[in-house]
Amino acid sequence: MKPSNFDYVKPKTLEETLTLLGDGGRDSVVLAGGQSLMPTLNMRLSAPDLLVDINGLDELSGVKLEGNQIRIGALTRHVEVENSSVIAENCPLIALAMPHIAHPAIRNRGTFGGSIALADPAAELPACICALGAKIEIVGPGGDRKIVAKDFFKDLYETDLKDGEIVTAVEIPVTSSKTKIAFDELSRRHGDYAMAGLAVNAIMEGKKIENISICFFAISATPVLAEGAAGILNNGILDDDSLGKAIQQLESDLDPLPDLYASRALKMHYAKELLKRNLESWMS
């Protein structure tokens, strides 16, 4: 299928972009990497009046180390994040996740900010930034603001973004020498959206765990932080007993949504299995 027709404009500045998006009379959509937007247009699942192509906004692109934060511009392509030494050294969780995102040709176009703003429940990056306690920078008609990642994802493809706002960057705290991470997902075919996935970020000294964030994706409508399970593990020793309890706690922490290939029970089983096999590997 071909998309319904739309107007196309490629602003040169952020101000111009916001003006275009702020024109309430038109149904406008931001075109960043386009790797999820274009299929929905091609299938005529959405038919906006105007595409605002932000690919000319160079200031939104790039990975920078700023003190103890990494700042990833919203327009930074997946391939750039994947190959970034700053990311590899300071945020290995993201580095681990990148190869799981679709395929090379998609990663050449798809953007970090686009993945966050789309909020696909099965996407890797929203879960990673939730686990990492990242902040999302937003610019809109009402000015700039920042929001903690876990508060950004509201519901299925629904975020805290208001009309006329765009994501400009994500700020991620750099890891410390004691940071322990895990990233894992189960997908039928390499590069597919996961049937279930897990991103974990913690501080670990010996077997003692602190500040653990356990975030699941492809389980529910949004990335889900398993806070009960994290509470069980936090400030304790990771052993079979505590892990067993944390796994059991997932029954309360998670409310899986079934999809075409996975029932609710399977999703729950996978969540437990992912937590088990990844944290067990921390014990060995």
Partner: peptide, 9 residues
């Protein structure tokens, strides 16, 4: 995307 055929990996 939803109808799965076997792929290289």
């Amino acid at each position: 995307a939803d109808y799965l055929v076997p792929m290289a990996v």
